[in-house]
Amino acid sequence: MLPEQTETITRAIFNIVKEHGPLTVAETWKRIKEVGLGGLTG
C-alpha cells in the first residue's frame, strides 16, 4: 500500500469516528463498507 493510500484511508476512518463515534470496531467496519472505502480486508 502506498503512503498516499494509507493517509486517505486513515483520514476516512478518522472522519467516520469523528462524525459517528464512539463506535465499536464492528460498527466502524460497517460504516467503512457503507462509504465504499476499498482496499481493506481486516
Rank of each mutant, 00 (worst) to 15 (best):
L23C: 13
P3C: 02
G36Q: 06
Q5W: 04
Q5L: 14
K30D: 11
V17R: 08
A12Y: 03
T6E: 12
M1W: 08
R11Y: 13
W29D: 01
T28K: 02
G36S: 10
V35I: 15
V25M: 03
E7C: 02
R31S: 03
N15C: 08
F14K: 11
T28S: 10
F14P: 01
G42H: 08
I9T: 14
I13F: 05
V35N: 04
G21F: 01
L37Y: 05
E27L: 01
N15H: 10
R11N: 13
V35P: 04
T28P: 04
K30E: 15
V35M: 14
G42Y: 03
L40K: 05
K18M: 09
E34W: 03
P22A: 03
P22H: 02
K30Q: 14
M1A: 12
E7D: 08
G21R: 01
G42R: 08
K18V: 08
A12E: 12
T10D: 06
H20W: 11
I9R: 14
E4T: 12
V25K: 10
F14E: 09
K30T: 09
E34P: 06
L23K: 10
L40N: 08
G39M: 07
F14A: 11
P3V: 10
G42C: 07
A26L: 10
A12F: 03
I16L: 15
T28Q: 03
E7T: 14
E19G: 02
M1Q: 10
R11H: 12
I32R: 04
L2G: 11
I16V: 12
E34L: 13
V17G: 00
F14Q: 11
E34G: 06
L40Y: 06
I9K: 11
T28R: 00
L2V: 06
A12L: 05
H20C: 07
L2K: 06
K30S: 09
T24W: 04
E34S: 15
M1F: 12
R11F: 09
A26W: 00
G21A: 02
G39E: 08
K30R: 15
H20V: 01
M1P: 14
T6L: 09
E4C: 06
I16C: 04
P3F: 07
I13W: 02
K18G: 02
